[in-house]
């Protein structure tokens, strides 16, 4: 057992120093104030958190939540059918199919957002095409608005949703569907009453991943939304760069982190509750 402690120590130490400690400092800084010169002064106040209640910041939060919600719903609608399709392919095509979906995931967010910029901007591919075909005579403003940001988010986060749903569908016992069919259920009814409910855990997992990721995104809004877009991510980015208001930025980050953790804990509890019944049944067997 001593060996065990020795082996796990380096990693734990590393994470302690470079993950836990920084977070604690950020918490501390969130209760600090900023001097006119951009320095941090630890005078222990909650002003930074109170600033959230200002209309400007509240609307930014609301906007961020809205975008996250839309993104999540869209990725579910787009991701579920694709995951389902892959899961019902013959076994040897499933792995390649999955890799095909996952490859975009491994490519830099930045590059992927930039690809859309090329397509959507005023002299971009889409506008040029539409102009040439005569559908429009002025370039459309497709970029630097909320729609573009949502498109970018959905595009970037779609693979996050596909994988958990695929895993969930793949684990589904086909015999349940056979039994349903044997009992007279039409295919769509079987889907609605059996497949969908039983694959909800996968959807839930994907939802958590996508929702939390989109809350903290700043690359996509920055590149595709430009100056107009202000989501929480950009706000935080700002505080640490131009505005040099680290205490406020820290407070924002803590709220973001806390919200993420809360969602994860809720999700975890929900999973436990669902598995509780299954576990008990297993133990009694």
């Amino acid at each position: 057992m001593k060996n065990g402690k020795l082996l796990i120590a380096p990693s734990m130490l590393w994470l302690g120093i470079f993950f836990i400690v920084p977070m604690l400092i950020v918490v501390a800084v969130s209760f600090a104030a900023r001097t006119p010169y951009g320095q941090v002064v630890f005078n222990w106040n909650i002003n930074n958190y109170l600033r959230f209640l200002e209309p400007l910041y509240l609307s930014i939060f609301a906007q961020t939540l809205l975008v996250a919600l839309v993104t999540t719903v869209a990725t579910i609608l787009m991701g579920y059918p694709l995951a389902y399709y892959i899961a019902q392919l013959p076994k040897r095509w499933q792995q390649p199919g999955l890799i095909l979906c996952m490859i975009p995931f491994w490519i830099n967010f930045l590059i992927r957002s930039y690809a859309w910029v090329i397509i959507l901007r005023a002299q971009g591919v889409l506008n040029t095409l539409l102009l040439k075909l005569g559908f429009i005579d002025q370039p459309l403003q497709l970029l630097y608005n909320e729609g573009a940001v949502m498109l970018g988010m959905i595009y970037s986060l779609l693979p996050f949703m596909i994988l958990p749903i695929y895993v969930s569908i793949e684990q589904l016992d086909r015999r349940l569907l056979e039994a349903a069919s044997d009992l007279g259920a039409a295919p769509f009814t079987a889907f609605r009453k059996i497949t969908l409910p039983l694959t909800m855990p996968g959807v839930a997992a994907g939802t958590i991943l996508v929702f939390i990721s989109s809350l903290g995104m700043f690359v996509v809004p920055d590149v595709m939304g430009g100056a107009k877009s202000a989501l929480v991510g950009n706000l935080i980015q700002n505080q640490f760069l131009s505005a040099r208001d680290w205490p406020f930025g820290s407070a924002l980050s803590i709220v973001l982190a806390a919200l993420s953790l809360l969602l994860i804990i809720l999700y975890y509890r929900a999973i436990q509750a669902q598995n509780g019944g299954a576990e008990n049944a297993k133990n009694m067997a």
């Binding site: 977070m23 950020v26 800084v29």
Partner: peptide, 29 residues
């Protein structure tokens, strides 16, 4: 380990926390 769940949590946390938070926390550190 006695603190099995804590260790597991610590391992998963960097993946679950938004990157931006991790980035700026390191900057602050």
């Amino acid at each position: 380990f006695k603190m099995q769940s804590v260790i597991n949590g610590l391992v998963y946390l960097p993946i679950l926390i938004p990157e931006i938070v991790m980035g700026l926390s390191l900057l602050v550190l």
